[in-house]
């Protein structure tokens, strides 16, 4: 016998094999084939992971601003409508917006929650406070983390609370590079 020019048999390996035997009829006949409909399902774990290349596109200056201790919003040049969360174009006029510095504007809690449970990525951080923040002179809000409050004693009275903002020294280039704390809370 001469070896075939190209392999006709796959090599057997252990990698990827997680189960070496599964119950199955010793013989296949009409009866055992029909019985297969009652078989319990095979359920297995399949890993799924990716690295995604994400561009902040026209919003990139916002993240660069956070890395440099500045919170930037957007302003519609024709109307002055101000977005606390930046966007490249204004909803009403359709015009490209300009950047505006919100860093030193008075800010307050508009709405909040305490998350005691969450998505897998954030489970280790629970409980954490999410808050929509309003800025003086801005027409829209900004979503951020609110620190310095007892997450086990929330109250609607937190709404309206004046807050200050603080930046991470080591930027992660995420919107959480800026976060908020109650004004009047003890400085660290």
């Amino acid at each position: 016998m001469t070896e075939p020019l190209f392999a006709t048999k796959l090599p057997e390996t252990d990698d990827g094999t997680i189960l070496f035997s599964v119950p199955f009829p010793a013989e296949l006949n009409a009866e055992t084939l029909a019985a297969l409909k009652a078989m319990a399902p095979i359920i297995l774990k399949q890993p799924y992971a990716i690295d995604y290349i994400h561009s902040y596109g026209q919003d990139s200056p916002f993240f660069a601003g956070l890395a440099n201790g500045r919170l930037l919003g957007s302003i519609a040049p024709a109307t002055g409508y101000t977005y606390a969360t930046p966007r490249g174009h204004d909803m009403a006029t359709g015009q490209e917006t300009d950047w505006v510095d919100l860093t030193r504007r008075p800010a307050a809690v508009h709405a909040f929650t305490v998350c005691y449970f969450g998505s897998e990525e954030f489970l280790p951080e629970c409980p954490y406070v999410l808050a929509l923040i309003e800025f003086a002179g801005a027409d829209t809000l900004f979503l951020g983390r609110l620190l310095g409050l007892d997450p086990h004693a929330p109250t609607v009275d937190w709404i309206g609370m004046r807050v200050g903002l603080r930046f991470r020294r080591n930027s992660k280039f995420k919107p959480t590079d800026v976060y908020f704390y109650p004004l009047g809370a003890k400085e660290e």
């Binding site: 709405a111 998350c115 449970f117 969450g118 998505s119 990525e121 954030f122 979503l143 951020g144 995420k174």
Partner: peptide, 30 residues
């Protein structure tokens, strides 16, 4: 919950603590 939270802005909202129950809860407090 993470998959569902990916139905929020992945630049500005999801990274803050993306969790839909949290988003709705903020609506409740308001």
């Amino acid at each position: 919950n993470e998959f569902i939270a990916l139905a929020s802005d992945v630049s500005m909202d999801y990274p803050v603590g993306g969790f839909y129950s949290g988003y709705y809860a903020m609506m409740v407090t308001r």
